[in-house]
């Protein structure tokens, strides 16, 4: 089937999409957007997290056909040109990135949290990131990054 979907503000088309294909596969393999990572394909790790119509979802569990006519925003769509989003900048500044595999999903999840709750408590941060696994950092630096991104966005 042919898929029409708006990705990061641009109308995109993909052809020969298989009925059982995931949004993650379309993004990575057909639209050249490898930012969203494929690690588990079963909703456990969150590294494929993207916005679907402003709601964070695991793109590995969304059938591509379900996104027909809808809006997707991936980690590639967060920065403003060369200027990183405050959440991205904060991950860099706080050493929250080691191998980086979990980073795109965590950045999208944290971006969503700060959009809804500008000044989250530690409990709220932990709850919001509960669907994202990181095997490297031990999470402390990630929590630091989200806390300081909250401060940075508050000031702006």
């Amino acid at each position: 089937m042919r898929l029409n979907v708006t990705v990061n503000g641009e109308s995109k088309q993909a052809d020969d999409v298989w009925a059982g294909e995931s949004l993650l596969y379309v993004l990575r393999e057909r639209l050249g957007l490898p930012g969203s990572k494929n690690a588990c394909e079963q909703g456990e790790c969150g590294s494929c997290t993207v916005y679907l119509d402003d709601v964070p979802v695991c793109s590995c569990l969304v059938a591509a056909g379900q996104t027909e006519g809808r809006r997707v925003r991936t980690v590639e769509g967060l920065a403003d040109g060369d200027r990183l989003d405050p959440v991205q900048q904060s991950f860099v500044d706080n050493g929250a990135v080691q191998c980086g595999f979990c980073t795109p999903g965590l950045v999208v999840a944290a971006h969503d949290l700060l959009g809804r709750v500008p000044d989250p408590s530690d409990e709220e941060i932990r709850e919001a990131l509960a669907g994202n696994l990181c095997r490297c950092t031990g999470y402390e630096k990630i929590l630091d990054a989200v806390r300081s991104a909250a401060l940075a966005t508050e000031g702006s």
Partner: peptide, 22 residues
């Protein structure tokens, strides 16, 4: 519906239905 059960089965080749009814 949300696909959180169905898509796991498709991704892991546990299920190949003739059609998906979204």
């Amino acid at each position: 519906a949300g696909g959180t059960d169905v898509m796991v089965e498709l991704n892991f080749d546990h299920r190949r239905p003739e059609a998906l009814l979204d």
